[in-house]
Design a protein around this nucleic acid. Structure first.
Lengths: 150, 150
DNA sequence: TATTGTTATACTCTATAACTATA
DNA sequence: TATAGTTATAGAGTATAACAATA
C-alpha cells in the first residue's frame, strides 16, 4: 500500500470517528444527526416554513413533517401559524431548543481547543484540509458529470 | 470565531463531504454504507459466520440477518452451511461481490492519488490527522467515563 | 393552476424479546 | 445450559403518490 493510500485510510478513520462522536453526543441530548441538522438550519435562519427546511436539508416535505413531529414531541421546537400564508407553518425554537443549540455551540468551542491545542504545524494541517476538500469536490463533480453523461 | 473553531468547521465540512461521496458511490453500486461495511469485514476476514459479523460491526444478530438477506437478494454474497457447526451459516462472496470489492479497492487507490497529489506539505497534513485522531479519541474516552460516572 | 403540508404506503437500518435447532 | 440464527414487533429516517386547504 502506498503512503497516500495509508493517508486516505487515516482520513477515513477520522471521518468515521467524527461520525461516532457526533452521534454519541446527539444521543446524549435526546437527538439524532437528522434532527440536529434541522435545528442547525433553524439556528442559521430563524423561524422558517417547513418548505424552506425541506429545501435546505435537501429532503422530502414528508420527511420534514416527521422530523418536526419528533422535535415537537420532545420539546425542541414549536409549530406556529404563518402570519400571511395560511397553508404554511413556521417552525421556531422553544426555550429548551435554543438552550440546547447554545450548549452545542459551547461544546464546539471546547472541542476546537481540545483537538488543535499543541498541534505542531497547525497552518499546514489547515491548508491540507482545504486542499483535500477542494480535490474531493472536484472528484465528486467529475463523477456526477460522468453519471449524467452515461 | 477563533481560528481553531474555523478549522474545526472546515474539518466537519470535509467529514460531511466524505460521507456524501461515499454514500453516492455506494448507491451507484446498489449498496448502502451498512452493507459495504459488512462486505469490507468479509474481505478482511474471508468467509465468516453471521455471529462474527455481528461482533465485528457491533450490531445485533437480527440486524446481520437483514443485511445478509439484502446482500443475498442483490447477489453480492451467499449463505453456506458451516462445515462443523450445524447451527451456524458461513457468509461468502459471490463472484460479483468479490469483483465489486476489488473495484472499490481500485477506486480507493485512485482517490488517494486525486486527493493528495501536489499537496504542498503532505507530511505535516498526515501528522495533523494523527494528532486530531488521538485527541478526538481521548475526548471520547473522557466523555464516556463522565457518562459512566454520572 | 400551483404550492404547503398531511395521510397512505413502502423500504432500510436499527433494537429487544421470544423461539428453534443445535452444541 | 449456552449459542446461532430466525420470526415477531417496534421506531427512526428516507422516498413517492394522492389529497386537502389555500394561494
Amino acid at each position: 500500500m502506498t503512503t497516500r493510500e495509508q493517508a486516505l485510510d487515516q482520513v477515513i478513520e477520522l471521518v468515521l470517528l467524527f461520525n461516532e462522536d457526533m452521534d454519541r453526543e446527539f444521543a446524549r441530548l435526546g437527538l439524532s444527526a437528522s434532527r440536529v441538522h434541522l435545528l442547525w438550519e433553524l439556528r442559521q435562519r430563524g423561524a422558517v416554513t417547513q418548505r424552506e427546511l425541506a429545501d435546505a436539508l435537501k429532503v422530502s416535505a414528508r420527511n420534514i413533517t416527521g422530523l418536526v413531529d419528533g422535535l415537537v414531541e420532545t420539546g425542541f421546537v414549536t409549530r406556529q401559524p404563518h402570519p400571511t400564508d395560511r397553508r404554511a407553518t413556521l417552525v421556531a425554537f422553544t426555550a429548551r431548543g435554543a438552550e440546547t443549540m447554545a450548549a452545542m455551540a459551547r461544546d464546539h468551542e471546547d472541542l476546537a481547543g481540545s483537538l488543535f491545542d499543541g498541534m505542531p504545524d497547525f497552518a499546514a494541517f489547515v491548508d491540507g484540509v482545504g486542499h483535500v476538500t477542494t480535490r474531493l469536490r472536484a472528484a465528486m463533480a467529475e463523477a456526477a458529470a460522468r453519471e449524467a453523461g452515461a
